[in-house]
């Protein structure tokens, strides 16, 4: 524990070290994703990947509010969640490249990173595919009295899937410790969410009696404050909650989605990048409040860059799984 605690309103109880850690994690995720894009562009990565760039404050602000044995479920756009929950970049890259050293021995790939050691129940390539799993993990937590909380990350596109409403109903009936975190990055793939989503989003959760709120997902301080509060309440037995984080995906739906002007303008993208960037925001605030200085943050930036470069090198050099691995682990 540290004595250097910044005490004011929403930021009470958050130490400088925690803010710095969140800064480092956000930078790390961004460098990671930039490298993923680079690997794709250089044809070094099989398949595609869905970049989290722009949304870093959501995963980091929320996972910072979790214990290491709390669970998360993630999505096709999941690298940020996995890293924020504690995954190490080298084994992440190895998984993205289909190498045996990857988190899933190369069998899962970008959209299926899972890791029991960090409470990661798995990223899921079916939109809304992990909502049942997250709710079930909360069921276990309650029945086994482990006092764990589960965070179910999903994009606003998943609001279209009926299973969300089935499990929110169950979670509320049984008062399960699960937080449904809707990352509203405005686009269901290539379609603006306003074309797919009727009515009031939060009302969909409050209809089941969940406490529901919305937060600026580009401000890690606000995200973390809301997450800490909801997670704590859920841990105390108050049941599930719904948190919508308003955010933005800087890149396309996936790395190959380059020409996006038929669904959104470059001007819109530029606006989010220059005016609402989550990393820049935290950086500016840390400096303005004299919690650290630019040189220290620059040092973190460069450490993150080095860490990610080393992780890529590790993954590129790592061997593929042997052919005999193909039919292993179909059954336990």
């Amino acid at each position: 524990m540290t004595a250097t605690t910044y005490r004011t309103g929403a930021d009470a109880r958050i130490s400088v070290e925690q803010w710095i850690r969140m800064y480092r994690r956000m930078v790390s995720i961004r460098r990671f994703e930039e490298q993923v894009n680079e690997l794709y562009t250089r044809a070094l990565m099989p398949g595609l990947a869905h970049l989290y760039i722009g949304e870093e404050a959501v995963a980091v602000g929320i996972c910072e509010a979790l214990r290491s044995d709390d669970y998360i479920t993630s999505t096709h756009r999941g690298h940020g969640h996995c890293l924020a929950k504690g995954a190490s970049p080298d084994r992440m890259f190895a998984e993205l490249l289909g190498k045996e050293a990857g988190y899933c021995r190369g069998k899962g790939g970008s959209m299926h990173i899972a890791d029991p050691a960090t409470g990661n129940l798995g990223a899921n390539a079916i939109v809304a595919g992990s909502m049942g799993i997250a709710t079930g993990a909360a069921f276990s937590a309650k029945r086994l009295r482990t006092n764990r909380v589960v965070v179910c990350f999903f994009g606003e596109g998943a609001l279209g899937q009926g299973v969300l409403y089935e499990v929110m109903n169950l979670a509320q009936l049984w008062k399960l410790p699960v937080i449904y975190v809707c990352e509203n990055n405005l686009y269901n793939e290539y379609t603006h969410y306003s074309e797919t989503t009727a009515g009031d989003i939060l009302a969909r959760a409050t209809a089941f009696g969940l406490s529901a709120e919305s937060v600026d997902g580009q401000d890690v301080r606000l995200v973390h404050e809301a997450a800490a509060r909801l997670v704590e309440a859920s841990r105390q037995g108050k049941g599930p909650a719904f948190l919508m984080c308003k955010t933005y995906r800087y890149h396309g739906h996936h790395v190959g989605d380059i020409n996006r002007e038929y669904y959104r303008s470059k001007q819109e993208e530029q606006g989010w990048k220059t005016e609402r960037d989550p990393i820049q925001r935290l950086r500016d605030w840390l400096i303005k409040e004299n919690l650290t200085d630019a040189a220290s943050l620059d040092r973190i930036d460069s450490e993150a860059k080095t860490e990610i470069e080393k992780a890529v090198e590790f993954a590129l050099a790592a061997p593929y799984p042997k052919p005999g691995e193909v039919d292993q682990d179909v059954y336990a």
């Binding site: 049942g132 799993i133 709710t135 079930g136 993990a137 089935e166 109903n169 169950l170």
Partner: peptide, 22 residues
């Protein structure tokens, strides 16, 4: 446990519960 008439929901819940100790 009696569930709502939500086969996808409670089956999905069972998957997650099975992964985590039930």
């Amino acid at each position: 446990l009696d569930t709502p008439i939500s086969e996808a929901g409670f089956t999905g819940l069972a998957v997650g519960a099975a992964m985590t100790g039930i």
